[in-house]
């Protein structure tokens, strides 16, 4: 600003411009948010008597966490844990294979239009429902047990990895693909020489991450009868054996920590 400008307006105040420039829109949003919060909070019913009752149980629960009981139910825990692990391995392996196929098909820059639409739709459907709902359906179809669990995990793995792989492929550097194409390479050669090297590190990272997620999910889908540590956990809950519940939860947390440690080491070596 020039000096003359400053003279004509001796006091120039400055305020930080608000995030939303339009004042009316801004206030509508603020007030709307406030009203929503009031309505939402008032719809939460709090039963004081029940809360007091719960306090006693909370004490038992925390006591359980502080002194987890691995011993009494050890054979159940062991079986459930190993089942979860095997489910995770199988579901992740098959999920990765399927998601490679669907991910390639769902990448706009590689696949033809009809293939793209079909693959994208499959991915969208497999992501739409929560794992637990898929598990309910699969348990109804395949019966109780880890098979339904594995199928559930495969579906959600494909939805997750397939979509992310397709997005990764869509953002690769295209000139490398052009260069390989101009040597007279076939579609498969183009994929292995120009696409795979560009997406491999990230895809490996995502697959490891999915391995970890699948293990955690396997603890949940057992609730509806799809096998794994989740089944053991539900049983413990139903019997009010909170020290066993605590033991199982601690093992899950330890497992996730371990998985993350391993994954970060592998990622460091691959990248």
């Amino acid at each position: 600003m020039s000096a003359t400008n400053t003279q004509s307006t001796p006091v120039r105040t400055w305020r930080r411009p608000p995030l939303i420039a339009d004042a009316r829109l801004r206030w509508t949003l603020y007030i709307g948010a406030a009203i929503y919060l009031v309505i939402a909070l008032s719809s939460v019913e709090i039963n004081i008597v029940r809360l007091f009752e719960g306090a006693a149980r909370a004490k038992i629960l925390f006591a359980g966490v502080l002194s987890p009981d691995f011993v009494t139910r050890w054979s159940d825990i062991r079986v459930g844990f190993l089942e979860s692990l095997t489910m995770t391995v199988v579901a992740t392996a098959f999920g990765i294979l399927l998601s490679i196929v669907l991910g390639l098909g769902a990448a706009r820059n590689l696949a033809s239009r009809p293939v793209y639409v079909v693959c994208r739709s499959i991915l969208a459907v497999s992501r739409a429902f929560h794992e637990l709902i898929i598990a309910i359906l699969f348990v109804a179809m395949f019966g109780f047990g880890p098979f339904a669990g594995v199928m559930t995990l495969i579906v959600s793995t494909v939805g997750f990895l397939g979509k992310l792989l397709a997005e990764e492929i869509e953002t690769i550097e295209w000139n490398a693909v052009e260069a390989v194409t101009s040597t007279g390479a076939s579609w498969l050669q183009r994929v292995t020489y120009a696409v795979v090297p560009q997406v491999l590190p990230r895809f490996l990272g995502l697959s490891l991450y999915r391995l970890d997620i699948n293990f955690r999910e396997s603890a949940v889908i057992g609730i509806v009868g799809a096998g794994g540590i989740g089944a053991t956990l539900t049983t413990a809950f139903d019997r009010y054996e909170f020290d066993a519940v605590a033991a199982i939860l601690l093992m899950i947390i330890a497992m996730v920590l371990l998985a993350e440690y391993i994954a970060s080491n592998i990622r460091k070596r691959v990248l």
Binding site: A176, S182, T183, A194, P197
Partner: peptide, 26 residues
Amino acid sequence: IGMIFQDYALVNRLTVMENVLSGRLG
């Protein structure tokens, strides 16, 4: 028809040899 590109268009994560050999893909 060989082609040479402005920003080299190499596949960065492959080795020099793999990049050169990709000329034989056809």
